[in-house]
Amino acid sequence: MKCFCSISASASLLFASSALGTVSAPPFSFSLAADGIAGGGYAADFGSVVQTAPTEWLFQGSYQGNTGTRLAWIYLVDPDPFVTGTFTVTNETSASRDYVLDFSLPISPPLAASLLSGQVSGTLTDSNGSGSALMTSTNGGFVYSALADDSFVQGLMANAFQQVTSASGTTSFSGGAFGFPEPVPGPAINSTIGIRFAFTLSAGDSVSFSSVFVANPIPAPSVLIVCGLLGLGSRKRGTDGATRTDSGLKRS
């Protein structure tokens, strides 16, 4: 965590330079707590980052702390903003563990108001062939929590209980969605969006989650008025510049 803090300033500067025209990856970060023992850092420091579109970056990496846990991820992020991807956690210890895993992305520009959507699916596997695997919500809470400015905005998979009952077996589950097909109104978002996963995983087993969190800006009223006026203007121009024929409107 010390390393995480010490590089935060330089990472923020790098991200800020993107506004000046230099293309830099955003300081997308993660933190992993296993039974309260935390670790993490900037995703780019634990793997690779590739720019895939003018405002999109693909982060791939893995992390193994000293808690007997393996974490690997592949995430596509856009500071404009969305966070989407897949991670896998494997509990390599001999006891079940409580995990809290955060992925956090600084956004740019801030959103005065937002429309939100999110979704999650996963797969639980009996990785050690013991004949069973179990993944549950920790204390009945949400497994998936969408965060805006580090505050909870939406949750999925409350009271989750997923299990595998055959040796080397697998179970896939859909964790539900919010804001599909129509996004739901959200708060103003000033600095970050993120996803928190909190779950308890049985010993020797692994779980994989694919998830999405999208925050779209709600256009300001003045922008809506301008758009409306532009639409009216173009409609008038279209009518003026067209001659009516038997088959309908035809541009002259």
Binding site: S117, G122, A177, S211, V214
Partner: peptide, 9 residues
Amino acid sequence: FQVMSLGDF
């Protein structure tokens, strides 16, 4: 931006 479960077999 939809996530789908492929099921398990």
